[in-house]
């Protein structure tokens, strides 16, 4: 594992200034202002960022590593919520928190789907049927944050840097989506323990509506990342 400092002005549009003044070196002494097709470059302050190479793998940018950490944090938050919602579970389950960071290079694959299917199955098994817990709200936050971090990580190469505008945009998306969980949570808390008088027909209608929703968003199989 090696950490490689890379010193460059990585602002888009700033040309690579090999010299402090952005001009070719002193060997250009014989050339004058009438040189054909000499490209001038404005000088810009150089910034630096670090990349991390894990073994023989690709270089990982700090932004990608941060996304991996966020995804891991989401899984940890989900497990904490599950721990308190279920009243405790076997310690071996805590090892699942390592899965997002170990599968960082497979963010664009179906690995994350399998991981979260397992986590949700665990929630389904460990929590009591018919119960409601406010711990489902942080669990939803953990799942959402991890999902978004994985999706954003898959949208750029391992060495790609995160733009602050993209971070703010994804933050707004996450906030809006999480508000839906809060609304549903409040509604579930409000109706919990009460009989709404719903018959089997209501369940059928609900499931048909859900199936129709899935049918509407049906698409081709997901593309494989290159």
């Amino acid at each position: 594992m090696s950490e490689q400092p890379t010193h460059h002005g990585d602002r888009p549009g700033s040309p690579p200034d090999g010299r402090p003044d952005g001009r070719p070196d002193s060997r250009a002494g014989g050339s004058s202002a009438e040189q054909p097709a000499v490209t001038a470059s404005p000088s810009r302050p150089a910034t630096s960022y670090r990349t991390l190479r894990l073994g023989a793998g690709p270089e990982w940018s700090s932004g990608q590593l941060a996304l991996g950490a966020v995804s891991t944090g989401g899984a940890a938050l989900f497990l904490v919520a599950l721990y308190f919602a279920a009243g405790g579970f076997d310690l071996i389950w805590w090892l699942l928190v390592l899965v997002p960071v170990l599968t960082l290079s497979m963010a664009g694959s179906g690995m994350s789907l399998g991981f979260w299917a397992l986590m949700l199955y665990g929630w389904f098994l460990l929590t009591d049927s018919g119960s409601f817990t406010w711990w489902s709200l942080p669990a939803a936050a953990g799942l959402l944050v991890s999902h978004a971090a994985t999706a954003l990580s898959a949208s750029m190469p391992p060495a790609g840097q995160l733009a602050s505008a993209a971070v703010h945009r994804w933050g707004r998306l996450i906030g809006i989506a999480f508000s839906a969980a809060a609304v549903v949570c409040c509604a579930a808390a409000a109706i919990h323990g009460r009989s709404l008088g719903l018959g089997p027909a209501a369940y059928v209608i609900g499931l048909v509506g859900l199936a129709a929703g899935v049918w509407l968003v049906r698409t081709n199989p997901p593309s494989q990342p290159h």
């Binding site: 994350s112 119960s131 898959a154 997901p222």
Partner: peptide, 27 residues
């Protein structure tokens, strides 16, 4: 569509069905 979209669709659908059938509002 990407794997992220497939993940969101599948997990949301399965959790919705499980919540309805299993009477699990937390899901």
């Amino acid at each position: 569509p990407t794997a992220a979209h497939a993940r969101a669709v599948i997990l949301a659908s399965v959790c919705g069905v499980a919540a309805v059938l299993g009477r699990r509002p937390d899901l």
